[in-house]
Amino acid sequence: MTESEPHSRPEAESRPPQHAVRQLDARSLRGLAHPLRMQLLTALRHGGPATASRLAEKLGESSGATSYHLRQLAAHGFVEDAPGHGKGRERWWQAADGGVSFDEQLLKDPDPAVRGAADLFLHEIANQHTRELATWIAGKNTWSEPWTSASDMSDWTLHLTPDLALDLIEKMHALVESYRALAPAEGTPEREQVRVHTHLFPTHTA
């Protein structure tokens, strides 16, 4: 399951607290729907606590820009101070939750600003997935043979009804979630963070 879930079925109840999923509403969506803010939040979720300057270096931005957008994320409850850090002058930040759940009804909100934010949010998720795949492909030869063999880029074409499509999505998500409990202990050889992307959408036949 991705950290950003463009569907309307939050699953926070089945996750441990550090992986809790936050349901986006119109206000919080407007606070998040900015490319740099979404990249900052993703960087904190994947890389752990960091300062504005460290995130600026990682993302190729100015520390002024990252500081401003981190404060905006904090105002909407997406990031918070990282306990156990901040011994220096710089403020350390961490993600406040494990992911967000997106309600498709936001795309039909009567406020055009909300609809625009919803559209930007989904496009940035797609851009993030593309960047992650491109980064993996570019650096694939730096990984061990077991990891290159364990990677996957697959796609299928099926013929389904909406009910069957929803059933498939829920089963895929449940399967991926089940692997959280199987995570090996830190320090286990070849233990790495992995990213799993799923996309399911209808297409018109030619």
Rank of each mutant, 00 (worst) to 15 (best):
H159F: 13
T148K: 05
E177S: 00
E145Y: 09
D155M: 09
S178A: 06
D155F: 12
L160D: 14
A150K: 04
E145S: 15
T130W: 13
I137V: 15
T135C: 03
A174I: 14
V176E: 05
W156S: 14
T148L: 05
W147C: 02
K140D: 08
L168M: 13
H129T: 04
P146I: 12
L158E: 15
L164D: 12
L158C: 15
T130P: 00
S154A: 08
E170M: 12
W136P: 00
P162V: 15
A138P: 07
L133D: 07
V176T: 07
L160P: 14
L160E: 06
A134N: 15
V176S: 02
D163P: 09
W156T: 11
T142C: 15
K140H: 04
A138K: 07
A150G: 06
S154R: 05
W143D: 02
E145Q: 15
R131S: 14
T135E: 12
A138W: 09
D152A: 05
V176C: 05
E177T: 00
K171F: 03
H159G: 02
E170S: 10
L175I: 02
A174P: 01
T130E: 13
W136D: 01
T161L: 01
E177C: 07
S154T: 04
D167Q: 15
M153V: 02
T142R: 13
T130V: 10
E170I: 09
P162K: 12
L133P: 01
W156G: 07
S178V: 04
T161P: 05
S144M: 03
A138R: 07
R131M: 10
D152P: 00
